[in-house]
Design a protein around this nucleic acid. Sequence first.
DNA 1: CAGTATCCCGATGGATACTG
DNA 2: CAGTATCCATCGGGATACTG
Lengths: 117, 117
Amino acid sequence: MLTRRKSKVESTPPMCPLSECLAIIGGQWTPNIIWHLSAGPRRFSELKDDVVGVSAKMLTTRLKKLEAEGIVHREVVPSSPPTVEYSLTDLGAELKPAIEAIVDVGHRLKLRRDAKS
Amino acid sequence: MLTRRKSKVESTPPMCPLSECLAIIGGQWTPNIIWHLSAGPRRFSELKDDVVGVSAKMLTTRLKKLEAEGIVHREVVPSSPPTVEYSLTDLGAELKPAIEAIVDVGHRLKLRRDAKS
DNA sequence: CAGTATCCCGATGGATACTG
DNA sequence: CAGTATCCATCGGGATACTG
């Protein structure tokens, strides 16, 4: 039997900075990009290889957005052929715990599913 | 001066269950829905009020998907007018740490930005 | 209350080709 | 190498109206 709900329920968690963070890591590919950058600086083509399936277009789009938001740092190395280093800023590094938590849960979810099938 | 990269870099984290989890919480509104459910069972219209801005269409869509994935439990209370209780399953509860990590980072990000402006 | 059914528009993102 | 430009199909998701 279901217990009757108190009119004010169990109190919803205070207020939600979820969107705040999701606006940053919400975009397609974005978590993957940040995740790969979390291991250290990468060049454009390295990232393109790491983040399997991403197109150059999307990768640039996301990197630009992340750079504008102060999450990643872009450093052009003047050389021929030119290379560009992408890395997480301090601000970007703060996202790591969240990404790791997601990875962790993803792992446990996978285990559960595999166990059931 | 940038240090030269070792050919094998700093080793990318093993393999990525990111997508595993993102496939679940990735959808628009989804994290918010789970977040609100994490405080306890809710009825359809309560959720619709909690998750500000969501349309009935999207809410049903997401809830159906989450139910199919075993993340939320749907319980129809036979009464007039009918009510429906949504709650997190054990599996769904495992997502809470990830959501909380995201909320936490979102909060810190907000603080940083506010400090700068 | 708790949805379902349609219509419909705009953004997302892939493929491809081109450039400094 | 590190992108940019263009074309174009898809589809997420809002508005609205209807139902058991």
